[in-house]
Amino acid sequence: MERRFNFLLISRAARSIGIVYVTLSLPLYLLYLGIPVSIIGTLLLLMVLFSVAISLLSGMLGDRIGYRYSLLIGEVPMLIATFILFHYNTIIPIEIATVIGGIGGTPGGLRGVFAPGLNALIARNWPESGERVKKMGRVMAVGAFSAFGGAVLLYSHGYLVSIMGAAEAFRMLYLSSFLLGLLSFASLVFIKERKAAKKKHGIIDRKSGKYTLKVILSNIVNGSGVGFSIALLPAWIELRFGVPPSTVGLMFTFSYVATAVSSLMATRRIDILRSPVWTASLSRIMQGVVMMAVAFSPSLLIVASLYIARSAAAGFGAPIRTAINVKGVSDSNFGIASSAQGMAVRSSTGTSAISGYLMEYSLPIPMEIGGVLQLLGGLVYYRLMRRDNR
């Protein structure tokens, strides 16, 4: 099992590089093609709805046929979308790729890590909570360090422009994302999954459903804030400061390193934390406070410094929160529970559509709203989860 775990790390590394480049570049590419930021936000909303459907279906199938297969199914939309982005240069296919790929959304350091079935697979293979956090922390650290590669791809766009033009540079780098997606898919084939009784009927038992609902409620609040402030952040930076894509890529490069380092720290500190729930909640509260400060920051350097700090907080809290989120879920319901929790996050980030329209009116407003909601998300998480995790 341990040896095959390395294939999961390879998959998350390749996926992170490819999907992070697409997530960072797609709003900028759409802006370059002349699509208004309000329409970009709407496209991301449609992407969220499609992604939610795929996530829920994969989770339900995973409980019945195995979570490894959920991960494999989850790779297919990205492969289709990146191929379309490379092969076509007209608006309609690109908009279709944005929707079906599930590759827009939040450009965080852990963007390429999570996929339907991942949390459930780790929970099944490593039932003990401390070991689960360590494994998840390693996966997140590898994913976040690899996200550095996605940001470097975007940074390299600035050099390719002089050779082949802006549009062709975007497309050639989308080909790189497609090839990385193939590597991720191939690596997942070699993953092993601990045998357990497969679910034969029903969706989720009452106890697991009640626990999952608490996670979902907090995720909706926090995800709404992320949709307002993070989903269109690359476009926000370009509109606010007028910088090229390569500069945006450089900023996110440092943020991904911060995420990776803090994820590793979480795996080493989990055994001495008095209150993992409070730590996980505090990380969300800190992220909200930082984004509220970003809204009125006068320079890109200050914005970059604040966002790097936010990324460190996110990286530390994520593996701890992931272990907590399935602690009260029975073994046969890991798939549907983790998919429903992820679905809540993804669907609530559909507020990016509202954010796009608000950005045409006032750039600071969506950052402020997003920051407040993320702060509230941390408080709600602590209020709902502390009693079950004393």
Rank of each mutant, 00 (worst) to 15 (best):
R138Y: 12
I73T: 00
A260C: 00
L173G: 09
I336P: 02
F114E: 05
R124F: 03
D388G: 08
L306Q: 09
S218W: 12
S55Y: 05
R321I: 05
Y211G: 05
G109T: 07
L264Q: 02
S146W: 02
I84E: 13
G335H: 03
F114N: 09
Q341D: 06
V76H: 06
D271A: 10
G377E: 05
L31D: 12
T267D: 15
L373C: 11
A151P: 12
T90I: 07
V161R: 15
Y69P: 03
T322N: 14
I237G: 10
G18F: 00
G350I: 04
L384D: 12
S305M: 15
G181K: 02
V221D: 08
K195T: 02
G117K: 09
L30E: 07
F334M: 15
I203C: 00
M1H: 09
I220S: 12
I80E: 01
L379Q: 04
R269E: 11
L79T: 02
A97I: 02
G149H: 06
M343C: 13
P364T: 01
I237Q: 08
P319G: 09
G209E: 04
L373V: 11
G377M: 03
V345I: 11
K207Y: 08
R310V: 01
M1T: 04
V345F: 14
W236T: 08
M265F: 10
R194A: 14
V345P: 01
V329I: 14
S299P: 07
F178V: 00
S283R: 06
L363Y: 13
Y159G: 09
G62N: 01
Q374N: 15
T351G: 05
G242N: 13
F241K: 08
A53Y: 11
R387A: 15
S11F: 02
S58N: 15
I103V: 14
V290E: 08
K135E: 10
I365T: 15
I96V: 14
L180W: 02
L9G: 02
T106R: 10
N222P: 02
V289F: 09
I365E: 04
G165D: 03
S305I: 13
L153A: 06
F86H: 00
L57F: 07
D388Q: 12
S352R: 00
E128W: 10
G350D: 08
A314M: 12
R206A: 03
F178K: 00
K214C: 04
E131Y: 07
M385Q: 12
V48S: 12
A167D: 13
I270G: 03
A196C: 04
A81E: 11
I122S: 10
N333H: 15
